Simulated scan of single mutants.
Amino acid sequence: MNYGTETWSLSMALIRRLRVTQRAMERAMLGVYLRDQIRNEEIHRRTRVTDIARRVAKLKWQWAGHMARRTDGRWGLKMLEWRPRTGKRSVGQPPTMWTDDIKRVARSRWRQAAQDRVLWNSLQKTYVQQWTSVG
């Protein structure tokens, strides 16, 4: 379920959809139906599956650190810096970029922060917490 999620731009709506899917999968694993009215906490206690929001956020944070520390010149880091030239802008708020939520925790110099693994790993807890406290 979380294959490739480190490349997604996270949003609260996406986290909610992932959690709904996870709960449905856990119910299927236990053979429990919605009409049985068993609380989600009880289902989590029985399955002991990691919360999908925590897993997705942790994977993305680790991938961001890996990308920032890369020095081999591959296109991944270049894609983070690329800004498309599309001419006329669309109405409304610009779409969320992949680095927006990372910058919220590690500030605009997140690539320099990622070079220090101790600092980067300490910031990971804050980053994961912001997505697990949602919903």
Rank of each mutant, 00 (worst) to 15 (best):
Y3L: 05
Y3P: 04
Y3H: 08
G4K: 04
G4P: 01
T5A: 12
E6K: 03
T7K: 15
W8V: 08
S11L: 06
M12Q: 15
M12P: 11
A13R: 10
L14Y: 08
R17Q: 11
L18R: 01
V20I: 13
Q22T: 05
Q22I: 03
R23G: 00
A24P: 02
M25H: 09
E26G: 00
E26F: 00
R27D: 11
R27T: 14
R27Y: 10
A28P: 06
L30S: 00
G31H: 01
G31A: 00
V32L: 03
Y33N: 15
D36S: 02
R39I: 03
E41N: 05
I43W: 00
H44G: 01
R45D: 07
R46W: 00
R46A: 07
R46M: 08
T47A: 00
T47W: 00
R48C: 02
R48S: 03
V49N: 01
V49K: 01
V49A: 02
I52Y: 02
I52C: 02
A53Y: 00
R54E: 09
R55T: 07
A57Y: 04
L59G: 00
K60C: 04
W61C: 02
Q62N: 14
A64H: 01
A64M: 03
A68W: 01
A68I: 04
T71S: 09
T71C: 06
R74L: 06
K78S: 07
K78D: 07
M79T: 06
M79C: 10
M79A: 10
L80G: 08
L80C: 11
E81K: 13
P84G: 05
R85F: 13
R85K: 15
R85V: 15
T86M: 14
K88C: 06
R89T: 13
R89V: 12
R89S: 12
S90Y: 07
V91D: 10
V91R: 13
V91G: 05
V91L: 14
G92W: 04
G92N: 09
G92V: 12
P94A: 14
P94K: 12
P95W: 14
M97C: 13
W98P: 01
T99S: 15
T99F: 15
T99K: 15
T99G: 13
D100Q: 13
D101L: 03
R104F: 09
A106D: 02
R109I: 15
W110T: 02
Q112C: 04
Q112I: 08
A113N: 11
A114D: 01
D116L: 14
R117C: 13
L119A: 14
W120P: 06
N121M: 10
N121C: 11
L123V: 09
L123R: 05
Q124N: 11
K125T: 09
K125W: 08
K125E: 10
T126A: 09
Y127N: 02
Q129F: 09
Q129C: 07
Q129K: 05
Q130G: 12
Q130N: 15
W131F: 11
S133N: 13
G135Q: 04
